[in-house]
Computed example of a mutant assay.
Amino acid sequence: MHRTSVVARSLLAATTAVLLTAGCSPRQGAPAASGTAADHAGKPVSDARPTPPAESAPAAPAAGPGPSRTAAATATAVSPSNSPAASPAPSTKSSDDAKPAERPLMARGAETEQVRELQARLRQVGHFERSPTGFYGAITSRAVASFQSKRELAPTGTVDGRTWRALVAMTHRPTVNELRPATTNELDAPDPRCMTGRVLCVSKESRTLAWMIDGTVVAAMDVRFGSENTPTREGVFQVGWKRESWTSTIYHTSMPYSMFFSGGQAVHYSADFAARGYAGASHGCVNVRDLGKLKSVFAQVRVGDRVVVHW
């Protein structure tokens, strides 16, 4: 009887050891099954919390110390970034105010075909009273500022995208005659440097030459200038020498009644200018198309007289 009890007790101990080993932890490398005894080893089943449904279960917390799931969820719920009150207020600026300033398309000193078109369009709406020259000087700047003021744009005198779009919207594409009219150009206001002495006063913007003595205009005529590749120089010069008949040693073209003022650049008659008008350009000289007027001025001008070429 005693021997049997000992054997029975040994079998009971062995069975209990096997059961305890199986329920201690999940198998290495395998996830614990939700809601099984493996999740609550060593605790009464009545202490185990029910597992929430999968769609409502909060995300598992990161490894290491930190707030509990409940605390993290609460912090997320009241985070300032998620609060409607913390959303940035909508901007009260208009779309035009928010736009950055546009880069200028045309400004003083430019000499291009687009400037010629600008002048022709400004003339259509009564802001430019001269023939287009293609040169952006003080007169063009004032005309642009006048147009901008009329259209409630900043009167900068410089053409940006907004100014150009407004002008194009209210004008038509200039015709050939509008871009290069054959009419005589109106004299520009004399440059201050032309107001004393004997001066050939040449304006690039109005495309005119005025022969002046002590501030009085003695004669005036239309002129044209060099192209972008061979521009006519600006500044104050003197007539260095004169030739009634001359042929260019570089271009082999006739240059009657030449008055040289800056190297090879001269005021002279141009048969091409007389025939084609502003459809052509010189190689840097000041071309005159009225032969009669130039012959008269040529006879009066002396070597040493000043030549002022300005905007």
Rank of each mutant, 00 (worst) to 15 (best):
P256D: 08
C201Y: 01
S227N: 12
W246H: 15
V217M: 10
G215A: 12
L209R: 02
E205Y: 01
T247L: 05
Y251T: 12
R224D: 13
F225W: 10
M255D: 06
H252C: 08
I250C: 09
G263W: 04
G226K: 01
V202Y: 01
T216H: 12
T253R: 11
R233T: 15
E205N: 00
W246Y: 15
M221T: 09
R233D: 14
T247Y: 09
T232D: 07
A219V: 07
S206A: 15
S203H: 00
A219N: 06
K242P: 00
S245L: 11
V239Y: 05
M212I: 05
A266S: 11
G263S: 09
E234N: 10
S227F: 06
S206D: 03
P231K: 06
A210W: 02
W211E: 01
S203V: 06
W241F: 14
G235R: 08
V236L: 14
Q238E: 15
T230V: 08
E244I: 12
G263N: 08
A219H: 11
M255Y: 10
H252V: 07
E205D: 05
Y257C: 04
K204F: 06
S245W: 14
W246A: 15
S227Q: 09
M212N: 04
A220P: 02
F261N: 06
S206C: 07
D222C: 07
R243H: 14
S258H: 08
W211F: 13
